[in-house]
Design a binder for these strands. Sequence first.
RNA 1: GCCCCCAUCGUCUAGCGGCUAGGACACGGCCCUUUCAAGGCCGGAACGGCGGUUCGAUUCCGCCUGGGGGUACCA
Length: 478
Amino acid sequence: MAQGDRSIRVRYAPSPTGALHLGGARTALFNYLYARQQGGKFLLRIEDTDRARLKQGSQSSIEEGLRWLGMEWDEQPIIQSERKEAYAKAAQGLLESGAAYRCFCTPERLEQMRAEQRARHEPERYDRRCRSIPREESDRRAEAGERFVIRQAMPLEGATTFHDLVMGTVTFRNDTLDDHVLLKSDGFPTYHLAFAVDDHESRISHVIRGDGWLPSAPKHLLLFQAFNWLPPAFAHVPLVLGPDKKPLAKRHGAKDVLEYRDAGYLPEAVDNFIAFLGWSPGTEEDVLAIDELIARFSIEKIQASPAVANLERLDWLNGQFIRRLSADELASRIAPRFSGVTADALRPLMPLVQERLRTLNEATEMLRFFFEEPRDYRPDQLVPKGRDANGTAAVFQAAAERLRRLPAWDHDTVEHELRALAEHLGWSSRDLFMALRVAVTGRTVTPPLIESMAHLGQAPVIARLERASASLSNAPER
RNA sequence: GCCCCCAUCGUCUAGCGGCUAGGACACGGCCCUUUCAAGGCCGGAACGGCGGUUCGAUUCCGCCUGGGGGUACCA
């Protein structure tokens, strides 16, 4: 088992077959939090030994996702496809020690073998035919150019037990383990070999990975033993499920984390959200920034059961984090989503929306009227229930008149004047404010009206009131 | 089929033999209120089943059931 004198080194090791999705991001985050908390290193390793499944651009999109979520990795990423020789050398060593053997079976024979096993309801495993080939014969055939793979020779009896930091003690009977392939006939390693070689060489202390790997963990442990290397500690974290209880994977439109960025979510919120999927600090705290997550994280508190991603909670969290931002911060995060509007122009408006945002993208709809004239008014929105168009048009005129005469243009003055107007007209402030709201903003849902008017400015407000009035006068009476 | 893992409100979870089973999201109600939010208060809502162990099980053990994963010259 891992000894205490080894420093903490962990890694996130995606294969570049797609984007970084929530589940992958969570695995990465657990590694990252642990490394940062322990003052260790967080490494990135690209597992691209399956050249058939490589996807162009995948690596850079995964890296972009990690950076967006604030997970900077230490050291140069390890690219497995560049390390073919290291794996071949390691496999050769195993051949020498007898922990592995060459297998010359053809894919066709293997397929037939499996078909027969299936028919007999037996476990589908390699039948170890080549395991008994004498070493000299094996060498001769290899030299003669015959194609082969290298398989790990599993112990035929006994059991392999290890302690998983999340799952607890796990035991496998050795005779159920397959003599799986370590080195493919194309010279590339399989995951298993590359995993052991790389984790050993980069002195990984803790392997925190998805629990899909749990069934092969005993093989990995045995592999470390075969190399006579000290194995890392293991922590298998359960899957993240979608709302349909199915694993969150490509199959049901699993999302690239960058899509959350584009949809207006803050990386802080996404980090918090995924951290709490299968983990909790054991307290009642729930809105934690990344440094707080780092301080509280512990592998032992990771849940052994899978978690269903509840996106409604992400919305709520995002609102919480938005509310914690300074006006400056918020403005600069919204600005890029708002074409033609600068953070400077946005900043004074932030107090109007900060309390009501769930995503950054909602800000553009809420604030658009500050930068654009309302488009066509809808009379049914402009005219309160029980009032008529002419009357309402007159009210807009009256409001414009009163506002034009105001000596100062600030919140209190405007509010006082408008409330007086409502009183004078015999309108409820509710009706009056709604009508004015639509006239000034073109919408029925907006930030608080008076503040909005104060920020918009006297002249634009009056102009919009007159325009709204005119639109009603011109409208055909019904 | 075989191997392995998992199991508390709808969801995320706290719990680590004795609790009125706690919190959060969502939901419902009330308050606040110029819309929408935010905020405050209140409410409904869970230990999958059966056996053990024990004075006592949500908690420990076994079985069942139900989920999930693995079973490739994929990771």
